[in-house]
């Protein structure tokens, strides 16, 4: 009789869910930009790398942790606003593929600039959170992953409150619903876009520090965008809640698939299995679980 190890299954599931939260952190940065400007910002991974590299380089030069955090936030805000002003504003009303290609190019420019400014060495990043596991009913749970989940939850709560209860948040939602109508009622779109890019920079900073502490701060950090894409397809490109739910689903399903289906394919399937899940969702529900359905009139 097949002897199923439920405890092991649960351990893989919990590990997958916690990994999924990390994917969501990256996906949220995409959502912020897409929601308000319709741009799929492929440079989010490069921004995340730039933020982590700036922070760790400042800390290694003796700048105290809080000061380094504030300084990096300022750098990311300036970078975000510069991107909006120099690259994207001149491309307003251009087709989405043009904007996407612009951010693709931007990601290479940011990566190159990061190497130029901070060098090519890899760095360790210690956020002061112990990464040793603790055991609950025979299941090992990572303290660091729980810490990351708490940060993600705080960030989502903050962003939700911001969008719902502040004037600028309401303006964001108006722009997200209909840019032309928002413009017609007097909302200053360039200002809103500048703020959104600043917010995306801040999200990149938080995600960069958590991913940097997990992987080390090195250039492959920008590849974490590849983990965020299936999350976005699944959850919807314009939903923060979707980014969270999508992350959890992708994280859990890819880990379970690797452990239980992987051996039948020789292993190493999790990187593409996430995309299989995303493709299936794309066929069934093109706007994702929580994305807005586009209604186009002829």
């Amino acid at each position: 009789m097949f002897d199923f190890d439920y405890s092991f299954f649960l351990e893989v599931l919990v590990g997958g869910l916690l990994s999924g939260v990390m994917y969501s952190l990256v996906a949220i940065g995409f959502v912020l930009i897409y929601k308000t400007s319709g741009v799929l910002n492929f440079a989010q991974g490069a921004m995340l790398l730039f933020a982590a590299l700036t922070f760790v380089s400042l800390v290694e030069r003796g700048v105290p942790f809080p000061l380094a955090f504030i300084a990096t936030f300022v750098v990311m805000a300036v970078l975000g606003m510069a991107i909006e002003r120099v690259v994207l504003r001149p491309l307003v009303n251009k087709p989405p593929i043009t904007l996407f290609m612009a951010t693709l190019g931007l990601s290479y420019v940011i990566e190159g600039a990061a190497q130029l400014v901070w060098g090519t060495q890899v760095h360790g990043l210690d956020l002061g959170v112990d990464d040793t596991p603790f055991e609950v009913s025979g299941i090992l749970i990572s303290k660091f992953d729980l810490f990351a989940a708490a940060i993600a939850a705080t960030m989502v709560a903050f962003l939700t409150a911001f969008f719902r209860y502040t004037r600028i948040g309401l303006a964001f939602r108006a722009v997200a619903d209909d840019q032309f109508a928002a413009f017609a009622v007097g909302l200053r779109l360039p200002r809103i876009w500048a703020i959104v890019w600043t917010a995306a920079g801040a999200v990149a900073l938080v995600a960069g520090l958590l991913w940097g502490a997990r992987l080390g701060v090195q250039f492959s950090l920008s590849l974490v965008v590849l983990k965020a894409l299936p999350v976005l397809v699944l959850g919807g490109f314009d939903s923060i809640l979707g980014a969270i739910v999508g992350g959890l689903l992708i994280g859990a399903s890819e880990k379970l698939a690797e452990v239980y289906i992987g051996p039948f394919f020789g292993g190493g399937i999790e990187s593409w299995f996430a995309y299989v899940v995303a493709l299936v969702f794309l066929l069934i529900r093109p706007a994702g679980l929580f994305g807005q359905k586009l209604v186009e009139r002829a």
Partner: peptide, 20 residues
Amino acid sequence: QIEVPHPGNEQQSQWLTIRR
């Protein structure tokens, strides 16, 4: 012999298998 997909920035499932 257990494969880690490129680039290798996620290894939770491989190490849980190792643990088992």
